[in-house]
Amino acid sequence: MSLPTYGEVYAKAAEGSPFSNSTEGDAWITNNCQRCIHDKPARNDDYENACPILGVAYCGKTPAEWMRKEGFRLGDQYTCLFFRDENDGGPDEPTPVPDPPGQLTLCPREPFERPGRMFADTKPQEVSVRG
Rank of each mutant, 00 (worst) to 15 (best):
S20P: 02
G71Y: 08
S17V: 03
A57P: 01
F83E: 03
G75R: 13
A120I: 10
L106G: 00
A13Y: 02
K61Q: 13
G60W: 08
P63H: 00
R73P: 01
R109L: 11
P63I: 10
D76T: 04
D85C: 09
P124E: 03
L74F: 05
P96W: 15
D92H: 03
N32K: 02
G71P: 00
V9S: 05
Y78N: 01
N49D: 12
G16N: 10
Y10Q: 03
K69F: 06
V9D: 03
G60K: 05
R43D: 08
G71E: 14
S128G: 12
T23G: 01
K40E: 14
L104C: 01
Q103R: 10
V9M: 09
E70C: 04
F19E: 06
F112L: 13
S128C: 09
T95S: 03
G75F: 06
G55S: 12
K69D: 07
F119N: 02
R35W: 05
P94G: 00
R73Q: 13
R117W: 11
P98G: 10
T30G: 07
L81M: 05
A11P: 00
K12G: 07
E65G: 02
N31Y: 01
G116F: 13
F19Q: 07
K12L: 15
P111R: 06
G71K: 13
G116W: 05
G7K: 02
C107I: 14
L74H: 02
C107T: 07
S128T: 05
A42C: 09
Q125V: 15
N44R: 14
D26P: 02
G60P: 01
P98L: 12
P124D: 11
T5D: 13
P96S: 10
P94Y: 10
P115T: 04
A14Y: 03
E70Y: 12
A27E: 03
G60T: 08
V97R: 13
D26S: 09
T62W: 11
E110R: 06
N21R: 07
K12V: 07
K123I: 08
T122L: 11
F72E: 08
Q125H: 05
T122K: 08
M67Q: 03
Q125D: 07
R43E: 12
